[in-house]
Structures are given as C-alpha cells and as structure tokens.
Design a protein around this nucleic acid. Structure first.
Length: 264
DNA sequence: ATGGCCGCCCCAGGCGGA
C-alpha cells in the first residue's frame, strides 16, 4: 500500500504532471492540496480514466483538497472539513476510510494547513487554531486504535534541519516557535513523522520557492508530511520524496511525498 | 547586486502563496 501527498498548486495547471505521476508510480492513495478550483471544475473524468476514484472538497480560486483511491480499493465514510469550527469555510481537510484487497482499512486525510503569514495579521492565529483543531481530531482518531495517515501540506518546518537556510525563516509563520510547538503537540498524540523516521539526514526538502532561483540553488524546506498513528507506523516500510518532478517544465513548487505500508 | 515567480480572477493588477 503506497500513499502519496502532493500540493499541486492548481489541479488544472498540473493535470499532465499528475497523470504522468499516477502512471509511473501507481500509488494506491493520493492526497492532493491546493486544487484552486470548485468541485465541478476538477478534471474528474481524466483522473477516473487513470483508474482512480475521486473525492474532492473544492473552493473557488483558493485552497481545495482531494483524495484519489486506486481501484479496486474504495473510499467510504468521507468527512469534508475539519471539526471544531462551524464558521470555517476554507476547503482544507478531507478524510476517508480506504479499504479492499484483504488488508485492514486505513483512514487517510488530505490536509492543507494555513500558511499563517503575515504573522501580525489574523492569519497567524487562524493557523494556530487550525493546528489545535487538528490535534484534537488526531487524538480522537488515535483512540480508534486503527491505522491512520494524516497527510498534507502542513506549512510547518519542524526543525532547523528541515530548511536549507533556517535563519531566513526565523520570523516566518512556517518556523516560529509556536508553529513548531503545535506540530510537536500533534506528534505527541502518538503520531510518527514518516519521512523523518525513515531518513535522519538533513537536506530532505519538499518545497522550493519559484522565486530567487531557489530550486537551482537547492534552497528548499520540508513542509509536506505524512503523520502515522501507531497502528500505521507499525506497518511503515519506507518513505520517499519524488524530487524529480520539481525539475519538469511548469512544475508545482511542491513535490510528492510517498510512504509504503506493509499489507496486513 | 540580497532579487529573481506563479496562478487565480467578472483580463488586469492585486491578492495569496511560502
């Protein structure tokens, strides 16, 4: 079972790259973020044609998340939106139970956490509140004692080792102590950062800004994460970053990150 | 020289991203 998370920065712009990735990697589940379209604008027929069922939570112009599930696996118990704030209309969370092929069901979420900049605006408290809501929901899911994968663009650089130039991020919402503490609090609910658990090396990035030649100079950061509940972590085989996609024409500024879990 | 982009939307400059 392979599960990928990828912030595509516009599904319409990135559809060719997505279809190429599905064909070459054949992941079982794909968590997409930043669709930047409404549900009716999602290129559903093309993705279904590649062999995937599609569940979306879209929004005009901004945000938007989706889950793709490769047949014969199926998605059920779809949850759209993160609990805890009925006023929150931003499309940042979708969750489902993925089952089939004789292996135990896995609960998977596609998450697009708020960026939070500028930090002196209401956007930063919204980010911290969203992280706290996610912690409470993650705690509820952990109590089910089943495999859970919380995957997405967390917009948090967990540690200095996760940035090529940590000093440049010192006062940024992605790296402020309160942001990192909220991420650690999430892990403290019993979750494992799959990439970090598989590879202790520095210099493993998932995002390179379009500006300032960041890709060419490898000025990246690691902000796309897959957090595993204990029952999912017990099955963790490997984790990898599909860095090559950043080098294509018209790339997303994020690349896919994939975990492999053992079956059964 | 410390900036350099990209995608969205009532089509064009402002907003959001990170």
């Amino acid at each position: 079972m392979r599960i990928t998370t990828w912030n595509v920065n516009s599904i319409k712009q990135r559809l060719p790259h997505l279809l190429g990735f599905l064909e070459e990697a054949k992941p079982d589940v794909v968590c997409l973020q930043e669709l930047k379209c409404q549900d009716e604008g999602f290129p559903r027929a093309e993705v279904e044609g590649a062999g995937y069922a599609v569940e979306t939570l879209g929004q005009k112009a901004y945000n938007g998340v989706a889950l793709l599930v490769r047949a014969p696996l199926t998605a059920s118990e779809i949850r759209r939106g993160l609990p805890g704030d009925g006023e929150d209309v931003q499309a940042r969370y979708i969750e489902a139970v993925v089952s089939g092929e004789g292996s135990p069901p896995i609960r998977v979420a596609s998450i697009y956490l708020p960026n939070g900049n500028p930090v002196d605006s209401p956007k930063y408290p919204y980010k911290l509140a969203f992280l706290e809501r996610l912690r409470l929901h993650a705690r509820d899911l952990a109590r089910l004692e089943v495999p859970v994968v919380l995957a997405g663009d967390y917009n948090v650089i967990p540690q200095a080792e996760d940035a090529a130039d940590p000093e440049a991020w010192r006062h940024d919402a992605l790296f402020l102590p309160a942001s990192r503490a909220a991420f650690r609090a999430l892990l403290a609910e019993g979750y494992t950062d799959a990439v970090r658990a598989c590879d202790p090396r520095d210099g493993l990035y998932t995002f390179w800004d379009y500006q300032a030649g960041c890709w060419q100079r490898n000025q990246g950061i690691r902000i796309d994460h897959l957090l595993l509940s204990p029952q999912a972590a017990d099955r963790l085989v490997s984790a990898s970053v599909q860095k090559h996609l950043r080098g294509l024409d018209k790339p997303s500024d994020h690349v896919p990150v994939t975990v492999r879990l053992s079956d059964g």
